[in-house]
């Protein structure tokens, strides 16, 4: 952790390396913007500056829903699971990269899980059937997620060539799409990618108002 902090400080201080901003826009085959798409950057060169890992990531339980619906993190990130509801949640995953069960009793309780393997971790709650979320654990040093407009601005990239890997919960089967050899120059640019999604989307529905048994 100390090392990372140090790196961050160096990164900020290092004026000798030019940094570029890259806007990424993801649309589906119908041309509609795709929110919640994860874009991860695999540099095709050796980064001269280590990229600071995001200090922390959070998957909240709030209003009988997970938030965010998609959380991109790097391998090695510790994710906290704070409970903002007055009742308990029993969060689980049986996805290959991380199998776990978290018992969150009540409000303000938070537990953490460390993600050391890359891949897609689907989350559920054993008490609330409607709850659904994804943690995308990336082996790449830079990860981001598109907003409602299908766009994301990735800032302070080191100029060079990158493969941009795209993932989304509703990707049609097949290999994950990659935008190959995108070159990022100091003056920045915009790239757009198109992905094929299943017609039936996985969504996290709000809780049913009536639940007997």
């Amino acid at each position: 952790m100390k090392f990372r902090m140090l790196a961050l400080v160096f990164g900020l201080m290092g004026p000798q390396v030019a940094a570029a901003d890259l806007a990424v826009e993801i649309r589906d085959s119908g041309g509609q913007p795709v929110p919640n798409a994860v874009v991860s950057f695999a540099p095709k060169f050796t980064l001269t500056q280590p990229v600071p890992a995001s200090a922390s990531a959070e998957m909240r339980q709030e209003g009988t829903m997970f938030s965010p619906f998609v959380l991109p993190v790097q391998v090695g990130t510790t994710v906290s699971f704070p409970n903002f509801d007055e009742f308990r949640h029993q969060v689980y995953s049986f996805s290959k990269p991380k199998r776990f069960e978290l018992r969150l009793y009540g409000q303000d309780e938070s537990k953490t899980i460390h993600f050391e393997n890359s891949g897609v971790v689907a989350l559920g709650c054993n008490i609330h059937d409607n709850m659904l979320a994804y943690i995308y654990v990336s082996e790449h040093p830079i990860v981001a997620k598109t907003g409602e407009d299908g766009k994301v601005l990735v800032q302070s990239l080191e100029p060079g060539e990158y493969d941009i890997h795209i993932w989304h919960p509703d990707l049609a089967s097949g290999a994950d799409p990659i935008l190959k050899s995108v070159s990022v120059s100091a003056d920045g640019r915009t790239v757009s990618g198109q992905i094929n999604l299943r017609s039936i989307r996985s969504i996290q529905q709000p809780p049913a108002e009536d639940d007997y048994n």
């Binding site: 029993q90 689980y92 049986f94 199998r99 069960e101 559920g124 054993n126 048994n213």
Partner: peptide
Amino acid sequence: VEAFLHYKPVPTSS
């Protein structure tokens, strides 16, 4: 009307 125990462990597979 009803009185029962419900056992539902966390799934470990699909």
